[in-house]
């Protein structure tokens, strides 16, 4: 695994990617630090971290677009997959390399609170808590980018798809506000998911019976659920989308509170997408 991390880090810094990432990340954090803290004479550093979340939209695709797409395109995945190195080590290695670059950039920005501490008293606990949140948040998004990179062989497609996904995640809270919360739409939403799942199964297995069976079982379950506890469907749609709301989970950190549930949420989210990436590559070999 270490060899893959080493190789990926080298690739980041022998190409422009690593430098562009560092430069843009440091430029925007520096800009916001100067404007909000120095210019505004404010000791609230957490404000900077929550204001520069938009940087993920640019930075994450930059870090992840190449990771697996380029290997597939250059056929170098043949080397990795026919070597004794386990597939999971390869994927985790790549993920950790991207995380390491992000961590490095974040570590440099730690200079800013240190500068502030020379000017007056600041709350270290809040800042470190905020940093942990920001870091884990980034890790979760990098995992999403890694997964998207495993789906395509084209870096540009990977970058655009990652950007779009992150944008949707960013806008998700606003979208959720506008979703219908009545019971009927909840039921319909559940039905759409069940049917969608059936279609997905059909396209992966090409087995009409299994797919139709799954869809039918899903619909029956929804009906039974409705009879037993109809209130379950009140506001179901917003609740489901809320699961994917990465940005709203950051609110606690913004206030300087280090609470356990968002930490676990981000870590679980990251693990899930790394796992999905491994499955995706596995599936490619079996198809």
């Amino acid at each position: 695994m270490l060899s893959v991390i080493k190789k990926e880090l080298r690739t980041y810094f022998t190409s422009m990617t690593g430098y562009i990432f560092l430069a843009s990340f440091l430029f925007f954090t520096g800009l916001f630090f100067t404007l909000l803290n120095l210019g505004g004479a404010s000791p609230n550093y957490n404000n900077v971290l929550s204001n520069i979340q938009f940087i993920f939209l640019l930075a994450v695709p930059m870090l992840t677009m190449r990771l697996l797409a380029e290997e597939a395109k250059q056929k170098t995945d043949q080397l990795l997959l026919t070597s004794p190195l386990p597939l999971k080590d390869m994927v985790i290695g790549k993920y950790l390399a991207a995380v390491a670059v992000f961590f490095g950039a974040l570590a440099i920005t730690f200079v800013y609170p240190i500068i502030m501490s020379t000017l007056g008293d600041i709350s270290w606990g809040e800042i470190i808590g905020s940093y942990i949140g920001f870091f884990l948040f980034g890790c979760a998004l990098i995992a999403v980018g890694l997964f998207i990179s495993s789906v395509t062989e084209n870096q540009v497609v990977a970058a655009v798809a990652t950007f779009t996904t992150l944008l949707l995640l960013w806008l998700l809270d606003a979208i959720i506000q506008g979703l219908p919360i009545d019971r009927t739409s909840g039921v319909l939403f559940a039905a759409v998911i069940a049917i969608g799942l059936a279609i997905l199964i059909y396209f992966t297995t090409k087995n009409i019976y299994v797919a139709a069976g799954t869809g039918l079982v899903g619909l029956v379950a929804i009906a039974i659920g409705y009879i037993i506890k109809a209130s379950f469907y009140d506001g179901l749609m917003p609740r489901v989308f809320q699961w994917f709301s990465l940005y709203s989970r950051y609110n606690d950190f913004e206030l300087g509170v280090l609470s356990l549930s968002p930490v676990i949420y981000y870590i679980t989210f990251s693990c899930a997408f790394v796992f999905l990436t491994i499955q995706m590559l596995e599936k490619k070999r079996w198809s």
Binding site: K7, Q74, K75, T76, T82, S83, P84
Partner: peptide, 16 residues
């Protein structure tokens, strides 16, 4: 995989 050395049709090389 430890027992096999493989040269694919397109040599899997990293240009950088």
């Amino acid at each position: 995989k430890k027992m096999i050395g493989y040269l694919p049709e397109f040599p899997p090389l990293y240009g950088d």
